[in-house]
């Protein structure tokens, strides 16, 4: 495994809308990831994503500025209805996407057969967490890059990079799944809607709030996810970030309301052979996208020129005003 030079690290940025894409391109993204306006992508939220003609315009805008566009087709097709997902792959190829980000084995097989020149990236939703797993995807489908699940420490990532033939991409900022991605049915257990099948997690359509006895209560489906004093700011009731009780104690059983900020690990990730750094948040505002992309690009530029990396500027953008390095640091487990 070769360490990745700072100047070769790619910054992969989210875009939920054409306007956000232009903002991210202008703020210094090396590549944008985005999805079509349907359940083929894992951020299938109302008002988000790209029509086919939006996508054509967006790819043109990005390519003129030397920025790549990756199209996420990363939910698991509904049985009996695979055509919708296959069409997304066909259209991504026809539109000139620089890669498609895919999780489903059947869709990978289809893309590899029908579009041998289309670059395949393995979505984090496939949760490929070992070199053996990654080798399956590279050998069976010619996958060129794997987005690693957020369950690995930096030394484990380095070990994986020593033993595989494709590139790796890791999340460095934004929402933090505490479960192995693509292998979690918590949302559908409470609401009937899941990331894998519907492209949503803890969907707003199933969230409700009310006040009771001076407390602000957040619910998801039929379940209370949090109760806090009514005068405190409430976090969105994502199921795995909720407060519960177990073994006689009350607390965040799974994860605190923190978000991922691995900015101080960027040099270590480069040394571990990671090729690309990914920012989560296709559902975020343009202002957020501009600030985060700008800050990470400045960090990469500082690394490349050997100057000190500006840290902490991202803190105020994190959920709940606190951040974690997540599984990248082994003690998180």
């Amino acid at each position: 495994m070769m360490p990745t030079d700072a100047s070769d690290l790619e910054l992969i940025c989210p875009a939920g809308t054409p306007a956000a894409l232009r903002v991210a391109v202008d703020a210094g993204a090396h590549a944008i990831y985005c999805g079509f306006q349907d359940e083929t992508n894992a951020r299938n939220f109302p008002g988000l994503n790209f029509s086919r003609s939006d996508m054509a315009t967006a790819i043109d805008y990005a390519h003129r500025r030397d920025c790549k566009v990756f199209i996420a087709v990363n939910t698991f097709p509904r049985a009996g209805d695979i055509e919708l997902w296959r069409r997304a792959i066909d259209d991504a190829a026809a539109l000139g996407a620089d890669a498609v980000i895919v999780a489903d084995i059947g869709i990978l097989s289809y893309a590899a057969d029908r579009h041998p020149d289309l670059r395949l990236h393995l979505s984090v939703q496939a949760a490929a967490a070992s070199s053996e797993c990654i080798r399956f995807y590279t050998e069976a489908f010619g996958v060129k890059r794997v987005v690693l699940p957020r369950v690995l420490s930096v030394p484990e990532i380095a070990d994986i990079n020593n033993r595989i033939s494709c590139e790796t991409e890791v999340f460095v900022f934004g929402g933090l799944c505490v479960m192995a991605e693509g292998r979690c049915s918590l949302s559908s257990y409470a609401t009937g809607l899941s990331p894998n099948m519907h492209g949503v997690c803890s969907p707003a359509s199933h969230v409700s709030y009310h006040e009771a006895n001076g407390e602000f209560v957040s619910r998801l489906g039929d379940f209370t996810i949090n109760r806090i004093p009514a005068n405190q700011p409430a976090a969105y009731p994502t199921l795995c970030k909720g407060a519960f009780q177990a073994k006689g104690a009350i607390g965040q059983v799974f994860e605190d309301a923190v978000s991922l900020d691995a900015s101080k690990l960027l040099p270590a990730l480069g040394r571990a052979g990671v090729k690309a750094l990914k920012i989560e948040g296709r559902q975020r505002s343009r202002a957020y996208t501009k600030a985060v992309v700008g800050a990470f690009r400045a960090a990469l530029d500082a690394m490349a020129s050997g100057t000190e990396i500006p840290l902490g500027v991202l803190k105020q953008l994190s959920e709940g005003q606190s951040a974690t390095c997540g599984a990248y640091v082994k003690t998180w487990r």
Partner: peptide
């Protein structure tokens, strides 16, 4: 886990409920 698929390829095996088989395309493969 998908990591086991290369080792069992070409010989009869079972796929457990923790592997994402959501549709007939994946099943066929």
């Amino acid at each position: 886990d998908v990591s086991m698929l290369p080792a069992v390829a070409g010989r009869p095996h079972a796929i457990g409920p923790f592997v994402n088989v959501y549709n007939e395309g994946t099943l066929e493969f």
